[in-house]
Computed example of a mutant assay.
Amino acid sequence: MALGPIHCGSFLLLAATVLLLVSTISAPVIDNISFLNITQNRAKATLGVFGYCSNINSNNHGCTPSQLGYDIASVSTITGWDYQNGHLETLTKALILHPIATGLAFLSFLIALCSDRLGFLFASLIALLAFIVSLAALVIDFVLFGIIKHEINDNTSAQASFGTAIWLTLAATIVLFFSTFVVCFSCCTNRRRSRDRELGGGYASGGYVGNQGPVMGQTYPTTTTRKQHFWNRNKNVY
């Protein structure tokens, strides 16, 4: 396995996977991790990927079952204002993109960690796909929860604010964007290192014979020049 950039790319992919995973296990799985927080006096509601939790700070605390899509209007029990919007309820089903992006990021991490040469290129393509899915999920998050936040703050006495999960998704999307290029760059650098090792092996094995010095262990014929005395230098001239 190549050293260098591949470790950086794998680390980025792992970081993106963890960030997306934490945002995915938001309310109702973990009630304090949410995309949107709604507070009314001492009561608090948190909205996540597969449902929401209401009245977290009171004795009437309860969370919906984990499901694909949920009714936004039912959160009105904490705000005292009934907001009906069937389009938003349908849009909550698109939050399934979060676990899909998590799975793609993790798959790209495994491929990058165990691959060599062209495997890095394949991992970068999976990372690019994970980035696109994560970006789509992020846009849906801001549209969906942004509308709810605006409606609650403008029409009720409750206060709504973006939660931790939406910022984790934003961070994961940025990390996936850079990791795509880092892992792709690893493919190029590893190819170049392999080519350099092959060329270096040719020199070491004696494959290239031009301008080489003596090879260790090989004998060459030697010629010796006998020194002549000055009275014999002109001998046999005639």
Rank of each mutant, 00 (worst) to 15 (best):
E89T: 11
N32Q: 14
S34K: 10
L13W: 00
V75I: 15
C8L: 14
A73Q: 13
G9I: 00
S23R: 04
D31P: 14
G80I: 06
F35N: 01
Q40F: 11
C63A: 06
S115T: 03
S108R: 00
I111Q: 00
F35R: 02
T64W: 05
A73R: 10
N57V: 08
T79Y: 09
S54F: 03
Y52I: 02
G9W: 00
A16N: 04
S10F: 11
T79R: 05
A27Y: 02
V18L: 09
A112F: 04
P28H: 02
V18E: 07
S74D: 15
C63F: 03
N32V: 10
I25A: 07
G48D: 01
L88F: 01
I111N: 00
L68F: 11
D82G: 12
I38R: 00
T79W: 05
A105V: 05
G4D: 05
L68P: 02
G48S: 00
K44F: 12
S108L: 01
C8E: 08
L3N: 12
S26T: 05
A112K: 00
Y70K: 12
T17L: 07
A105L: 03
S26F: 02
L68R: 09
D82Q: 15
L21D: 08
D31N: 14
P5F: 09
F109V: 06
N55L: 09
L20Y: 12
H98W: 08
R42V: 13
G51N: 02
E89G: 11
Q40G: 07
N59I: 15
T17R: 02
F106H: 00
G48V: 01
C63Q: 03
A45V: 03
L110S: 07
G86E: 11
S66H: 06
K93V: 08
N59E: 15
V22M: 08
I78V: 10
L19V: 06
Q67T: 14
G86L: 13
